[in-house]
Design a protein around this nucleic acid. Structure first.
Lengths: 348, 348
DNA sequence: CTGTTAGCGCTTTCAT
DNA sequence: ATGAAAGCGCTAACAG
């Protein structure tokens, strides 16, 4: 663990000069000394001590990725396929930008802010935050914030944060319109839980918009809430597949995961897709590809989401540009595959 | 950002005394002052500055999780379903143990060690490391190390590290024995790439052991290396399914992912499982459950792996217990599901 | 262009 | 039981 002071002694110069070389301030150091110090740095394998940087508030170079999970779900959120994927992409981009990534899971905003303070975190990327928590973050935290897939209340339009999301409404709308174009009129909607919020809510609104534009009525009974526990969810799907579901020709799910899960339960009970139901997912992740028939779904570019969030955050960190609100909703793409077809004639 | 000094002033005591309260050194502070300081700490919402801890080498409280990926695969490793899952579990356990998790991906041991030095990391958890890199880590790093799923050379038996792995040999053996018990004699083996190493190698050795015990011969041509690029892999599978594969009744894959991927390619080409081939996976992850028929596979407890790795590492960090080598290979479990059956009579 | 110095917040002797 | 002071490594302000 060689220090700046030691290097300074080694080359008979001051720590300041060494520091200047480390930071590439060529103008402040003679070419000769620059060279000498540079090679000393290499030879001794100098590694800067982040503690000293931290202590002097010279920038921790840490970006914290916060999984602000809904504690209702006792499952470890990082096992959710979407979060998995994006964490990988985030890590990659954070590293490329020269920062370090601290990963933290917490349902508590206060907890997360403690982390940020203790480590003098330079910026936060927040995943899975519901509007209420997002509000708390924005109000209580002055550090740069980037949300991913969070719909923040309009009243915060003037606040300083970044959000990178998806045109969930449009996605929900498009996929529903597609089903309608195939001839479906009896369509049910499935989501993860009863209380729709955030991306699921927008997808649902897009869905309803498509129906109402076409003059198709939608009632509460056409909405089905799925349990996050596999056994309960499966039992429920089995149950309704024998009863209520008979009246539908198409089923819209808020995620590929739920759609695939349902397809398999149906399969086990002799129900075939798309023969008996057309089924759609959302995300276009690996699940939609590793099933037969492949899922008709809404594609999104997860890598792009991660890169944009990190890049805007880093820009914000470096420019100290305050007061700029960035709210990007990326385009979606309808991916038509085998899980959808025209409604079979035998059905009403 | 209230500091110890400020708290000290507030209660008219010295920073030292405040520090003692923070660390719960009850014996060194009068009960009265202890109380007074405690409440001041609460009232002011004191948050300790990690930079100062770092600088004084008082323990960074950081555990780094290193994804020591093989750079050959250009894909982002964190998108691999196994790594996804375990990262979530690791984060959870690290947090529970009162540490912070830094996530870092790198193919370079040197890079990883720089990180460890700069941050005064207290311990490293290393995923996906090949024996060569593991050797470098062990030789060059004096900090506590915990590998996950790494087979370290026997010559390092006396070194100080932790490894938590799986009885991969046994798993490969068991699943192959099961196929044999069903009557299969023509069995092919599929792995991710040509050069088997680490867990895949052990699984393969278990596989061969089961064959040879039963007097079934195995030749180089019965081994199939799969490309990590989906398009190449799929083309290859299509190709061989029309030719070489016809002579086999069972196909053993080193992972659920590869097995499921192949099943789908086969399905697209009119090949049914288990009618045409019995197929086995390895891992018992979500892929093996979200396909029909479900995969016969080898189960492992990923959460347990993560918890053990973290707990042993923390124990090692705290006890400063040097020179103890811990090498745990967790049990596997044969999970029999629908992807395997007796070989059909029509085949040779 | 180079060097000196103060100070970031905390812990840890060492006195008292 | 309490406190004073040194020191961890670095950067930035200031002086030369």
């Amino acid at each position: 663990m060689v220090t700046i002071k030691e290097i300074a002694k080694l080359v008979n110069l001051s720590p300041t000069t060494v520091s200047n070389v480390i930071h590439g301030h060529k103008g402040k150091v003679s070419a000769e000394n620059y060279k000498k110090i540079s090679s000393a740095l290499k030879d001794t394998n100098y590694i800067s001590n982040m503690g000293a940087r931290l202590l002097g508030h010279h920038g921790s170079k840490i970006i914290a990725v916060i999984l602000n999970f809904d504690r209702r779900a006792e499952v470890n959120i990082v096992s959710d396929p979407f979060y998995d994927q994006i964490i990988g992409f985030l890590e990659e981009e954070i590293r490329k930008q020269g920062y370090f990534m601290m990963l933290y899971t917490s349902g508590s905003v206060t907890e997360s802010l403690r982390l940020a303070t203790a480590w003098d975190i330079e910026g936060l990327i927040i995943l899975g935050s519901l509007p209420d928590d997002a509000k708390k973050f924005i109000q209580q935290q002055q550090r740069p914030l980037a949300f991913i897939d969070t719909y923040v209340d309009e009243s915060y339009m003037n606040d300083d944060f970044i959000n990178v999301g998806l045109q969930d409404f449009q996605g929900g709308y498009d996929i529903t319109k597609y089903l309608i174009s195939l001839g479906h009129r009896k369509i049910a909607f499935f989501a993860d839980g009863d209380h729709l919020i955030g991306v699921d809510e927008k997808r649902f609104l897009g869905f309803k918009q498509a129906l109402s534009e076409t003059g198709i009525s939608f009632q509460r009974k056409d909405f089905f809430a799925l349990d996050y526990r596999a056994d309960k969810r499966h039992a429920f799907l089995r149950e309704i597949s024998r009863n209520q579901l008979k009246q539908y020709t198409a089923l819209v799910f808020t995620s590929d995961f739920l759609a695939v899960d349902a397809i398999n339960v149906f399969y086990d009970n002799g129900i075939k897709v798309p023969r008996d139901f057309s089924i759609t997912g959302f995300d276009h992740n690996i699940f939609s590809e590793q099933i037969r028939p492949k899922l008709t779904t809404i594609g999104q570019n997860v890598n792009q989401k991660a890169v944009l969030a990190v890049d805007y955050l880093v820009e914000r960190i470096q420019s100290k540009h305050v007061g700029r609100k960035i709210n990007i909703l990326l385009n979606t793409e309808l991916i038509v595959q085998g899980s959808t077809a025209k409604p079979s004639e035998v059905l009403p």
